[in-house]
Amino acid sequence: MTDEKTIAYLEELSKFRLNENEKEKFKDELGRIIEYIGKLNKLDTKGIEPLSHPFIYTSSLREDTIQSSSEREDILKNAHDNKDGCFKVLRTVE
């Protein structure tokens, strides 16, 4: 079982809110999944390097040459709201 506090914290990190039904469900399901994942602790991983890329090869870096940017109307095409060439949202308080 995952507790109320953890669910609330995860909602905050994930930036969405669960309804009451989902909350109850998730408390149980996430709890079981996290418990299952705990089996990884049975393995001794001392000194093992964590893998972040399946194959390590030389990174290819990009030359510092200017490419043409996108057309502004394409960039704004999928936006819900725009004004004066900018994306528009409700006022953000810093």
Binding site: I7, L10, F16, R17, E22, I34
Partner: peptide
């Protein structure tokens, strides 16, 4: 995000955040 993500997606995102 609450209205547009399905349940499984929410579950996995929360697990990932955890």
């Amino acid at each position: 995000r609450s209205e547009a993500f399905g349940e499984e997606v929410k579950r996995r995102i929360m697990l990932g955040s955890f």
